[in-house]
């Protein structure tokens, strides 16, 4: 099969939608973060594919590398926060982490 830009964009769109569904349905904080990771990687697929097949130059590759680095940084902070949450609540279920209501 000949792989074209359309295939990559379709893959990215599917990944993005799966990420959104993950965000909306997961109750586990780690699961939610995995959803975020899917969205970021969907964007990376887009960026690199446009850079390779589209009219774009090397900016897409550079952008994707930056996103990978930032995603790592964000995950570090997010996991540290999830650890702190587990320490306090003994759970990482985002629905049960709510001391603050009206």
């Amino acid at each position: 099969m000949h792989v074209t830009l359309t295939h990559f964009v379709a893959l990215a769109s599917i990944l993005f939608v799966l990420g959104l569904i993950n965000l909306a349905t997961r109750r586990n904080a780690i699961g939610v973060l995995l959803g975020v990771e899917l969205i970021l990687n969907a964007s990376n697929v887009n960026l690199v594919a446009f850079s390779r097949y589209g009219i774009g130059g090397m900016e897409g590759h550079a952008f994707a590398v930056m996103v990978i680095a930032l995603a790592a940084a964000e995950t570090v902070v997010a996991l540290a926060i999830v650890l702190a949450i587990f320490h306090h609540y003994r759970t990482v279920d985002v629905d049960r982490v709510s001391k603050m209501k009206l």
Binding site: A12, F16, G19, L20, L23, A29, V32, L33, G35, V36, I39, L40, A42, S43, N46, V67, E74, V77, A78, I81, V82, A84, I85, H87, H88, V94, V97, S98, K99, M100
Partner: peptide, 22 residues
């Protein structure tokens, strides 16, 4: 409460900046 604030911030923040990135 501070940890809970951080968790909510990171989840909403990461999700919305991910959508913006896409």
């Amino acid at each position: 409460r501070s940890s809970e604030a951080a968790l909510k911030y990171v989840i909403f923040g990461a999700a919305s900046s991910g959508v913006a990135l896409f």
